[in-house]
Nucleic acid binder design. Sequence first.
DNA 1: CAGAGACTGTACCGATCGGTACAGAGAGTC
DNA 2: GACTCTCTGTACCGATCGGTACAGTCTCTG
Lengths: 191, 191
Amino acid sequence: MAKGTIAKTVSERADLLPLISEVFRRHGYEGATLALIGKATGLGKGSLYHFFPDGKAQMAAEVLAEIDHWFEVNIFAVLRNSNDPAQAIADMTACVDRYFRSGNRVCLVGVIALGASRDIFSSQVQDYFSRWNDALAQTLRRAGFSAGVARRRSEDALLTIQGALVLARALDDTRVFGQAMVDMQARLLAK
Amino acid sequence: MAKGTIAKTVSERADLLPLISEVFRRHGYEGATLALIGKATGLGKGSLYHFFPDGKAQMAAEVLAEIDHWFEVNIFAVLRNSNDPAQAIADMTACVDRYFRSGNRVCLVGVIALGASRDIFSSQVQDYFSRWNDALAQTLRRAGFSAGVARRRSEDALLTIQGALVLARALDDTRVFGQAMVDMQARLLAK
DNA sequence: CAGAGACTGTACCGATCGGTACAGAGAGTC
DNA sequence: GACTCTCTGTACCGATCGGTACAGTCTCTG
């Protein structure tokens, strides 16, 4: 009930999600507190619950949806629509390297997959990876590989990205991530 | 101050660590609460703080030390001492598959590496992976590979294990982990 | 200018957080 | 039996958790 100390900033929902996303990335679902999210966005709980009436779970769900959409547009769709498989895979690799800032940024979907919160978001996590897997395998099929090889190579690529992020962070060496991306691209199109 | 309701169970420190380890694995460092640890061990805070006066941080540090020791004995030492590189790598692969229960169990060191708690345990995390990396690269050198190739293949193997754990959990498909272990072993000794 | 509705900070809620204090219970020693 | 030391449960601490309530402030519409 302090007198007239309320400013008006008018935040856009779309501007909020990337900021919240980084908090979840850094601290995981359980570690991301409303206080941290408030600090990152510059908003109080009032505003936060105005935009996300269902609280933290809704924020995480919408962040995951936005990430899913970004990958759908920038990566999955490119893989599906390209008729130059080698170029599509090169584009994907470059895009992934840029997105994860050469290993300095962590994959939120992977972080959630490892934690206890996987059970809450299991369908979104599974969907993200299996759609990526399908799109990439489809591209490899178009490059002339059998369904089995395509699928196996695609899974290998996905797991390489996730593992490279873990190891690069563990060793504090982004070079590990860069090398893994080079190796991954070579393995995808080998032979 | 309820009257005489205190039982005497006499827990062994050594029996405690594996139980605590599983809590950290499932919930991460921030998500592992004293209540969960108490539930898992069947001990109250009194006993917990008797064994670990510095609380949660000490528990995590000792769990990490125990994991480190287990890998040192069962994996790193085997890699260093074997004079049959192919056999040593096959043993490592089998041992890793067993330890991670074919992808059903998560790597605590990897989980910590991804989270904010990495900063607290950075030296232990880095040590674990770089000692593994050194031991494996040394084995590959003995198999006749150049230092550069050995190092690159070794890093690739470590990242494959971590990524396979993430992807297997995300897709809820342990087959992914098994296939990754097969591929990893083949790539380590290829050509 | 009046009213509606979106957006804001803040006080507050019960629950739980990590951690402390402490007394009771058991086993060993004399 | 009295003393000591280890191990135990539990009451309690201040801080913070996710979430609610609400009054104030702005913009937009008439």
